[in-house]
Design a protein around this nucleic acid. Sequence first.
RNA 1: GCCUGGGUGGCGGAACUGGUAGACGCAAGGGACUUAAAAUCCCUCGAGCAUAUUGCUUGUACGAGUUCAAUUCUCGUCCCAGGUACCA
Length: 869
Amino acid sequence: MEERYNPGRVEAKWQEYWSKNEVFKVTTDPSKEKYYLLEMFPYPSGKIHIGHVRNYTIGDVVVRYKRMKGFNVLHPMGWDAFGMPAENAAIDNNTHPAAWTYENISAMRVQLKKMGFSYDWDREIATCRPEYYKWEQWLFLKMLENGMAYRKESFVNWCEKCQTVLANEQVEQDKCWRCSQVVQQKKLWQWFFKITDYAEDLLVHCDKLPGWPDKVTTMQKNWIGKSIGSELKFKIDGQDEDLTVFTTRPDTVFGATFMCLSPEHPLVETLSKGTNQEAVVDAFVQKISNQERSADGIEKYEKEGVFTGAHCINPATKEKIPIYTANFVLMGYGTGAIMSVPAGDQRDFDFARKYGLEIRVVVQPRDAILDFSTMVEAYTGDGVMVNSGQFDGMDNQNAVEVITDWLEENGRGKKAISYRLRDWGISRQRYWGTPIPVIHCPSCGVVPVPEEDLPIRLPEEANLLAKGGSPLPALDYFSKTTCPACGGKDAKRDTDTMDTFMESSWYYLRYCSPRYEEGMFDPAAVKYWAPVDQYIGGVEHAVLHLLYSRYFMRVLNTLGLIDFKEPFTRLLTQGMVCKETMTCPEHGFLFPEEAKKQGDDSLACTRCGKKVEVGRVIKMSKSKKNVVDPNELLEKYGADITRLFCLFAAPPERDLEWSEDGVEGSNRFVNRVWRLAIECMDKIDAASIESFNGAASDLKFQGAKGLYIKANQTIKKVTDDIDKSFHFNTAISAVMELVNAMYTVDIDKADKEMKSVLLFCLENVLLLLSPIIPHFSEELFEKMGKKKTILEHSWPAYRDDSLETDEVLVVVQVNGKLRAKFTIGTDVDEAGIKEMALNDEKIKKYLHEKSLKKIIVIRKKQTLVNIVV
RNA sequence: GCCUGGGUGGCGGAACUGGUAGACGCAAGGGACUUAAAAUCCCUCGAGCAUAUUGCUUGUACGAGUUCAAUUCUCGUCCCAGGUACCA
């Protein structure tokens, strides 16, 4: 027999066996309980990296475990194939997005197969295939038909020099990443989905997802950002029109000394027109239009504003207050206008100080006196109402409701709810994505493409424009068409494509019936398989992808296509695999292999020899090039040791700074098990000795009994770790401990009883390790002469009667400090433990000449005595 | 900035609802086997002190607090990561 485990030979053998026997192919089978496990599908960026390996190994372990538990398991894989990197690669390498993507898919499929993952490859999908995106276009039409999609004007990052729209990622310090031109904000007509219609439902159900990590639902709740407040009406001075603001602090309305409008607010232009502020306001609006207009963006710029020339009337004080326009007010949140209470809001305070506006204290803290002239910052806490007419002296929290009611009686306000969540803009001025199936007709306007004309195919052979622009608008054969409504010849297709989050919002339903041609999915298949029982992916997707998916299921539910609303019953968010970035002054980001160590320990670029700067430790991504390709590990150690190492390194939810130190340990462990198995097979005559399967109490000798109990404890520990917490690192540690215990047995001297226990241990070590290192375990299982493969074997069970030894360790503390330990039988009562603790020689010297205050005895998992003197 | 996490030996990590801090492994040092190497096996391994045998003190980012007892709970501070709506 082989001395050492030979991964090359063994892994190829079992991968072939699995594939030949179609072991991982699944079909709907109502006689079996289904289990749908899904890992987030990868973007085909070229090669898989260690982050993928970690994600997919976690999933594969759970899949193999669930199979052994008797479930009918769906475990598919595919490609999130549309997206910007393909366009960037096409420009950089003078290739084509489609060619690049398909090549990457082929290469990555080979790598995944080498890892031995248990995918049903017959269900593979790629979202860039018309057979897939056809149904996305179909859904878009349904949403349009049902008023779930609409068009409005909104801003994009625009590079004038490249004549193209830039993604946020392509904007570096307000400049274009390709040409360093200052980026402008350009207004375009774009499509939006009314996700805000579901804001409340998405929010409420965050608390009905017990299988999700709290941190993820918390992030989603904060993202949706429900705030309860009031809508107040401020009459514009000299006009009949009202300005409506949303505020969460109606109690401070008496302190509203000015008003701020978002520069995009339609009234900004109207109000300033004809006043002597007109020119100033126009210039300001123009200036702000080049700033990034998002909640994140506004933090980057200095807060500034200008007077519009108009005033409005504070509905509480009836005073005339100036209306400003300011860059920190966003059109997309609330009403695009705020009442400014400088005494109670820091931004308003800064603004008021900067422009010399009035500050009026309306909420006085209970432990200090605020004076508007000496205040250095706003007071946002609670307190007593002042300067607020009939409400003076009231607790401000009570005033919230009372003032709102009062204003409502006067027709100047009402209670209102506002959400931070905005509608989902899905139009992209890009090429490599799903075409939006509408036609623009000069006489009929926006006309949906008739269903029978789907899919609207993306012309895959089209070439990107040099600077990254989409070729679609200029491709007459694509864009020119006849209007389906009036037959007009001068109609044009929408040349925008959809946000790639669309594809990933429903792919898991497509997997249920990937070749179905009558709709998005076969309803019967979805009824059997969906929703996904366990979803696994990076925590980076905690909000966007996961929220969009939840939204899509609500849309499909509303449309009557599915009978559930939540796509993922259980969610595991894996931590990021991180690595430092490296940049060369000449070549930008470098792959790890492109930086070479020099004599003085600094790094040099392998292309130009310039000094490489080592950056922060951040998540692995192709765009930053800080990726580690698993191929080297795979060649040296094989798939199983790579899998084992990834799992042993840290629990899944933890971020991991990548290092290969320690892989030797995994290699050593696997070979240790191999040698142990070979030795057991050589020295234990399997024909005359059977693996032990009784109770620990049936064993005569302490050695065998102890080992048997250890084995049962290990089965329990590994089962719990895989099933309940996904803590594979501690599961592996537990098996290592059992293997170490087995090594202490001298097989040559072992009696029949011990040999029988050893066989039990060996079998279970292989069964417990089989989801983690499947090729290795199959090989040894076969060598042991087992008829069934490990995959057909059921998961081992432990005996409740064989989990505990008959001795308990007692830990004795004096004033909380550990002073002594001893063991007792399980039958000693609390009084007996106390007595033994007090009479212990080591303890006695601490009690000398001191009076006993208290003795605490804890008998839980540990037995502990704390003597307080 | 805001939201969400995280911080434990030289390193990865363990400690389940507060109860022996450092399981398991890596690296390092010492030893055995060997002509040698690889492989394997054994021992040591948080820090400081010591009567250097099993003793004492200290230690889980930092500073306070609650408790008989805090890595675990509360408050504050620092640092790191993820997200921040067009990277996926």
